[in-house]
């Protein structure tokens, strides 16, 4: 086994373990921490593919900003441990078969398509440039629309927070 494959399996294992732990943990802070582990492991996977910029952005934006806010809010509200509930009938009859089906489908697609690991791009410095060019030329409109969407969300949050109760 070559080094990239070993690193891939370590990172993938960490990501899956983190995801399972995210669901199993009873305390919100621990769940949030598990999610951070998943995100950092994903960033490692992106690095393995040579997508340095995406990896860095993944850590800065998701692990470093969004999750900090999650943790901050959990700490501020002082949320306690969750109580376990029985699995609802809806989830049991519909959810489980559906998720099993989805997993089968994913496994089939991955098994058919992916053959080994190949870096998506060879020179990442160039890749960063290419990505930026695409964002500001071909995808300028969707990019700006996304920004406006986020702005609207922020405005909504401010309005909700300022509303007289």
């Amino acid at each position: 086994m070559s080094a990239p494959i070993i690193v891939f399996f370590i990172l993938a294992g960490v990501a899956v373990l983190g995801a399972v732990s995210l669901i199993v943990q009873r305390h919100p802070i621990r769940s949030a921490l598990s999610l951070i582990v998943v995100m950092v492991a994903l960033a490692g996977l992106y690095l393995l593919q040579g997508a340095e910029l995406v990896a860095a952005v993944q850590i800065i934006v998701y692990a470093g900003a969004i999750m900090v806010l999650f943790v901050f809010v959990i700490m501020l509200l002082n949320a306690g441990e969750e109580e376990r509930t029985n699995v609802s009938r809806m989830a049991r009859t519909l959810g489980l078969p559906l998720s099993f089906f989805l997993m089968l489908q994913l496994a089939w697609w991955v098994g058919r398509g992916a053959r080994g690991l190949a870096p998506a791009v060879s020179r990442s410095q160039e890749a960063t440039k290419e990505l930026s060019k695409l964002l500001f030329t071909e995808f300028a409109l969707p990019f700006e629309l996304t920004s406006i969407l986020i702005l609207v969300a922020i405005l909504g949050a401010v309005v909700l927070a300022k509303r007289e109760s």
Partner: peptide, 21 residues
Amino acid sequence: LNIGLLFLFAITSLGVYGVAL
């Protein structure tokens, strides 16, 4: 690293957790 500066900011952005946790 090609993304040396971004790496540094990624690390500092994670630094909050030590203190907050």
